[in-house]
């Protein structure tokens, strides 16, 4: 009889296997999961460019906060792609596995709740960041994107991807039907991202909107990320960074509890 396999405090092999499975699962469908969002980003870029009037030139009328509108828009589109991919990947994966009953394969493996959380969150964040990278490369053909603060770009991209990955795990565990999933996407995630200043400067908002938008964590992701490219932020970066870390920690704690108690996945 083979002796039980030994591993230390962290089951690295198990964690790596879960991570690899989840990442390969997304990338296998790269046409729909990576190229689809990339095309949508380009469409948004084209539509805004045309709606603004291509022939306006640098006369100052198209400037938002000192940079051209497309330069302002591009970072928002990148975050949009990262967020949606990170959220959808893990939520759809969990719901699918629950429906098919193959979630047992994950629950049966010798993985602690923390390892499960890490595997799912990291793989979703990876998928999101990879999609974001593809979008960046495509956008570079059309928009001049100077890098002013690489640290801010990396930090806010990571924090944002993680936030949406954890949110995706929450929805994936909670949802019992695909209806729940698409409802959470349509009524929660997309409105939060769209209304966070992805496409416009929050200074364009009426006063009520300006005071509401600072409660939206996605706003800080986009603002900090955009700062990395344009060098201009509409809020305090430190506040944004601390707030995002707190939100990520809280979401992580909730997800950990859910995995530990086996919420809706264990009888």
């Amino acid at each position: 009889m083979p002796a039980p396999r030994r591993f230390g405090a962290v089951n690295w092999l198990g964690l790596w296997t879960l991570y690899r499975r989840e990442v390969l699962r997304v990338l296998k469908d790269y046409r729909d999961t990576v190229l689809g969002p990339a095309v949508s980003s380009l469409l948004f870029l084209a539509v805004f460019h045309l709606a603004l009037g291509a022939g306006r030139g640098p006369d100052g009328s198209n400037l938002v906060g000192g940079v051209s509108f497309l330069q302002f828009l591009a970072p928002g589109l990148i975050i949009l792609a990262i967020s949606q991919r990170a959220f959808e990947t893990v939520a759809a994966s969990l719901i699918f596995d629950k429906h098919e009953g193959i979630i047992a394969d994950i629950l049966m493996a010798p993985l602690t709740p923390a390892e499960r959380m890490a595997g799912y969150a990291a793989s979703a964040a990876t998928a999101g960041l990879f999609t974001g990278l593809v979008v960046v490369v495509l956008l570079l053909f059309f928009v001049d994107l100077p890098v002013r603060a690489p640290a801010a770009i990396v930090f806010f991209a990571l924090a944002g991807a993680l936030l949406h990955a954890l949110l995706g795990i929450l929805v994936g565990l909670w949802a019992e039907k695909w209806d729940h999933y698409s409802a959470s996407l349509t009524f929660l995630v997309i409105p939060l991202v769209f209304l966070s200043g992805t496409f416009y400067s929050v200074q364009q908002l009426p006063e009520l909107g300006q005071s509401l938008v600072i409660l939206n964590p996605i706003f800080y992701i986009i603002d900090g990320f955009r700062f990395g490219f344009t060098g201009q932020a509409e809020s305090s970066l430190a506040v944004g960074a601390i707030l995002l870390l707190l939100v990520d920690l809280c979401l992580g704690a909730v997800v950990y509890r859910l995995f530990a108690t086996g919420f809706r996945v264990k009888p």
Binding site: F48, A51, L52, G53, S61, N62, F69, L73, D179, S182, A183, T186, F187, I190, P191, F194, L195, T198, F199, Y200, Q204, L205
Partner: peptide, 29 residues
């Protein structure tokens, strides 16, 4: 039967588009 997804969701999405385009371009155009 799934009117939330088929009737209500398009309303929300369309209003979002209206909001972002108006906010982003309302002054310039």
């Amino acid at each position: 039967k799934v009117a939330t997804q088929t009737l209500l969701a398009p309303v929300v999405t369309t209003l979002l588009f209206l909001a972002i385009f108006t906010l982003a371009l309302g002054r310039a155009v």
